[in-house]
Write a protein that binds this DNA or RNA. Structure first.
Lengths: 109, 109
DNA sequence: TTCCTATCCATAGATAGTCTATATATAGCC
DNA sequence: GGCTATATATAGACTATCTATGGATAGGAA
């Protein structure tokens, strides 16, 4: 009965999108998504870090250890050219699906 | 790399919605979703029947064996009052999520 | 008559993507 | 010194999907 904190299958897209505004560390990405969505979408650590590993593995992001403004070590993720392209693909597929679902839901009962 | 035929987490909602137009058998539900979505959404048998079992178990649909117009035995699923209510809940949660994702995607990069 | 296709139900097993829970570490504040 | 927020990461469970089957039958084609 438990509902997911986000719509499955959309996390990679949300992360990639967040990174278009510049490199960020994982924790920052999670905060950004939470804030931009007005607290509707929450990314748990157990979802976030595996997702970042996936993105690294596909070459859609690059990672680099740096210090944050708060003087902590953190791993900053940066969107690659391939990642930018992938984001476009995912967004357009997502929109196509949403439109299709909208058509089904719009039917008169 | 393989993309899902539908957005995970939306199947139950789509089935319930389809049944608001009257009782249907599983195969008919799958065809309806495919047709209404202009072939964008495809429900595989391996997703459909487990989903119908779930819905039965929750009491959101009832099942009854009948004959189709094509003279075959088929199991017709009918939305219950609880199912109708559940559909409302799922649709509103879904729309909330879509809006939230939209806000994230709308951000200037 | 026989074969083929579309219609119909259903399950097993693999896979993917979440979540929960936990572990570790540190900066800065009280 | 302890607490909170910041930060990374993994193990294990769980859910929901897909792939791949298997079986049955009606009706039309060959």
């Amino acid at each position: 009965m438990k509902k997911s904190d986000l719509l499955p299958g959309t996390l990679d897209m949300l992360i990639l999108k967040t990174l278009t505004r510049g490199a960020q560390h994982g924790y920052g990405v999670a905060l950004s998504i939470k804030r931009l969505s007005d607290d509707v979408l929450t990314v748990e650590e157990g979802s976030l870090y595996p997702a970042l590993q996936r993105l690294l593995l596909q070459g859609w992001v690059k990672a680099e250890w740096k210090m944050t403004e708060t003087n902590r070590r953190a791993r900053f993720y940066k969107l690659t050219a391939a990642g930018k392209k992938q984001l476009g693909v995912e967004v357009s597929q997502f929109e196509q699906m949403i439109d299709a679902i909208g058509r089904v839901l719009a039917e008169q009962s």
